[in-house]
Design a binder for these strands. Structure first.
Lengths: 351, 351
DNA sequence: TTGAAAGCGCTAACAA
DNA sequence: TTGTTAGCGCTTTCAA
């Protein structure tokens, strides 16, 4: 005989959303027993468990995680926040996928959002995630400084930075060896005998862009090249301006024999310029970032490939370890880039 | 003079996470006043508001949305679930971005996850989202039937299906005009005088694949071609098998003069085969789905482009309308595909 | 093995 | 304009 009154509380509508109380009443057990079953806790007889499970199926009951986490000691929401440059670009979306795979396997859901290189978005998206009490954060820092995150970090909100290291806060980071990758590009071109270079990079206020330029120029200088004379363009933020700049270089009195483009989009612009002018087999090109179809172009495009999937995987594993209580000192993990030889970077300087 | 006892409850640790009660005590107001300020409700004097705001800053307080939604009448969590084929592929990630933009502007966060064409994942991911009480669902159906969602749909959980229409449930859907797009591809090739075709498609159990094949074949038949004789390959699920099949076709006794590849990955395999055999300027190719660099290949690749951003935008707007209470009958929205002429599809049949 | 009571942080309803 | 009380659905604590 059921003694509770809660049956009266069930709306006549059969499509109300049942609570644990409803399940308990239907199964004729206490609410705590339902909780035990739903959370796979021990000390429930097989018969009782079956009875409860049957009631959950009858009512189509689903545990409310948020309500539970409110009272639960660890207060975990089983969700994390992920801030990427842009979920639509291949670099971001590969990271996204790698992270999803790891958290998914642990039953943790991922909120992802795009920053568009906008510091104001960084702030507002982080606020949105914090308000949802995510268990951790993986983010590409864009604001000049991340010191504002210190209070959260001390409150034991784990965070891992990706692609760029944070400033003003000590935390884990996972980044590509940008300087070394660009250095290798320079060495590769120098080995073919090039002496006339051009450098096209994106926003110079972004850490990675600076590192790539430094790496590239350092190697040129080691080879005795006066980098002050190397045509250098920073702030090339879209394909069309990259194309225009490349056209200007190609048509100049002393065109470069080798071009280094420090980023995906920039590479696309340069490729268009080379194709239009028919110089694609005469001027060497190495691009930072691999891209789809790079091997199908004429010539194939030699690139310094990053490994976004690897970055995502490592970041996810670090965050998971932190969530699980890992207290080791924070550290920056460096994911090596890779020179992929396909043709465009092996063109020798014109006689 | 504060009379509450809750100050004792604040841990000595300065890095505890403050509650609304703590803010209220510090500001010397009632908890409901803090709630009013945090939710921008009226009827708070400017002075009080300032005092509360100051306290929130001092404590670094952040409203807990989940706790609030528990009691709030509308029970909204301000989050939605998004199920995509694969967040890493360009089609999915463009949709993802379009949806993010619209929900973000409304303060609604997006849980995204990848299905990998796996019906079991569809079920488990939906369960995960429902357990988090998302306010709505946008999903690419993969399971044979979505009738299992009827209870949730009747409980007033809005949902919009994308890319494919659901089966077994009446709900909004946003899809590409697959049949019409493929039909147009056929017409385009027929107009160049082709009579020997080959068709390569992906998993035939996927609705869109069937529609594309139907559209393509219908147009061929209209032109008097016996489609029973057209070499047709379904279940081409990766680039390498597409390449092998294309190589077989190219090297056969009677090679096709025009190939239609019904999906991105398949197109990549065919392109490789054409390039390897040097037939890229001899055999015509039209692919379904646009891709990066399609214009940079030799020849440029003629495609039937889908508009994933548009699909995402419409789906997001529909879901938002439903969340806001729109009760109109459910409907399927069709996003037109677009023929993009670039060269490969304009190659005439060999003499 | 089971369940009753308290309370997580917040909003609704209502009183002052 | 402000504050008090109850209670959202759940887990914890502790008693049976």
């Amino acid at each position: 005989m059921l003694t509770t009154v809660s049956n009266e509380m069930q709306p006549k509508n059969p499509n109300y959303r049942p609570t644990m109380r409803n399940v308990a009443d239907l199964a004729g057990v206490g609410i705590k027993t339902v909780s035990r079953v739903m959370n796979n806790e021990p000390n429930v007889s097989e018969a009782t468990r079956e009875r409860v499970l049957k009631a959950t199926r009858q009512l189509n009951y689903q545990l409310d995680m948020a309500a539970g986490s409110l009272k639960r000691t660890d207060r975990k929401t089983m969700s994390i926040g992920l801030l990427l440059p842009n979920v639509a670009n291949p670099f971001s979306s590969e990271i996204n996928r790698a992270i999803e795979d790891i958290f998914n396997a642990r039953g943790i859901a991922v909120f992802a959002a795009s920053l568009d290189d906008d510091a104001a978005r960084e702030a507002s998206l982080i606020t949105a995630f914090l308000g949802r009490r995510v268990d951790g954060l993986i983010l590409t820092p864009i604001a000049a400084n991340q010191a504002y995150l210190i209070p959260e970090h001390s409150r034991d909100l784990p965070m891992v930075f990706i692609d760029r290291e944070p400033r003003g806060i000590e935390a884990d980071a996972v980044v590509t060896d940008n300087a070394e990758g660009a250095r290798r590009a320079a060495a590769h071109l120098l080995a073919r005998g090039h002496t006339r270079f051009a450098y096209l990079g994106d926003r110079f206020d972004i850490q990675t862009a600076q590192q790539r330029q430094n790496g590239f120029f350092t190697e040129l200088e080691k080879a005795g090249i006066d980098t002050g004379l190397v045509p250098t363009f920073n702030g090339v933020i879209d394909e069309e301006s990259a194309r225009q700049i490349a056209l200007g270089l190609i048509n100049s009195a002393e065109p470069p024999t080798a071009i280094f483009s420090a980023q995906n989009i920039v590479t696309f612009g340069v490729l268009h310029a080379l194709k239009e002018t028919g110089k694609n087999h005469e001027i060497a090109l190495v691009g930072f970032d691999d891209f789809l179809m790079a091997d199908m172009l004429e010539p194939g495009v030699t690139v310094i490939a990053q490994h976004p999937g690897e970055i995502g995987r490592i970041a996810a594993e670090r965050l998971l370890a932190r969530i699980d209580g890992d207290e080791q000192p924070s550290k920056t993990y460096i994911v090596p880039s890779e020179l992929i030889v396909r043709g465009s970077g092996e063109i020798p300087p014109a006689a």
